[in-house]
Amino acid sequence: MSNQTEAEAKKKFSFGDFYKKLGPMVALIVLIVLVSVLNFSFLDPLNLLNLLRQVSVNALIAFGMEFVILTGGIDLSVGAIVALSGAFTAQLVLSGVPTLLSLLIGMLTGAIFGAINGVIIAYGKAAPFIATLATQTILRGATYVFTKGNPITGTKMSNNFGFQFFGQGYLFGIPFPVYIMAIFYICAYILLHRTTFGRKTYALGGNPKAAFVAGVKNNKMIILIYTIAGFLSAVAGAILTSRLASAQPDAGNAYEMDAIAAVVLGGTSLAGGKGRMFGTLIGALIIGVLNNGMNLLGISSFYQQIVKGIVILVAVLLDRKQAKA
């Protein structure tokens, strides 16, 4: 008995465990303090609101990525989905389709692309990395074809108040995309931590064979999860298109990397089965503060990439250490 409590006490103080529970939060706070000290204007409410708006696009994609990574998968096509669904939305708005309908259709197409990813991975038994690398290339190519390589824009978009509001508007002084992020965070949180769907997601990532024997319909779950990832990417795509008042053919390029980084920084294991939605939100905020802070400090964008890469590397190495312990 004393042996057991001793082992338990030891476990409580292990660094891996500590990082898993509080690490991302601590990292975020340290980062915020650091940036604030170096440049007071970081704490300017206007800057903070701007930061949250910047974060919202990556956070939305990362919420979907969290589900995917929890199953032990990965989705490299999310950035391309951002671009193509955004282009669809823009084209619909330009051709006079009601704004809300345009937005919904754009999001629906994102969900469909996600579902296709899921079907390929579930029924084609394809490795998620390769499957989504292929669909990323296809969707990016389709975006270039659809946009003919030029931005889709026009006065029907820039003069459309409803459409502009989606990405640029403020409600009670807070940018509208922040509300969208908050709503989908709550939805994703409940789905992952309070429903049978979430429980089965963890089971699938922890041991797909055991999950199947215990009655989980693995293929159905995988399709649904990639559908969610596609849908949320399209929501992010709609915000981006609205904010820029145009759909760029290379929009969302490499966004999958920021989303994966947010998930990993948030303490989710790339091996699947372990991680929390709150961690991913923190992870997205860490990346947002990094970007925003480095801009404020006037660090060149070339160096910014190096710093971001190092931060992600450190997080992954900590994750490994934790897995070993």
């Binding site: 049978t196 429980r199 089965k200 963890y202 089971a203 922890g206 041991n207 064979k209 055991a210 999950a211 024997v213 215990a214 009655g215 989980v216 089965g273 372990k274």
Partner: peptide, 21 residues
């Protein structure tokens, strides 16, 4: 180990999986 349990998951998450619905 390969089909009966999710070794990384808690006892609770293992036990209630077939009954969770």
């Amino acid at each position: 180990k390969t089909e009966g349990l999710i070794l990384d998951a808690t006892l609770a998450d293992n036990i209630d999986l077939p009954s969770i619905d």
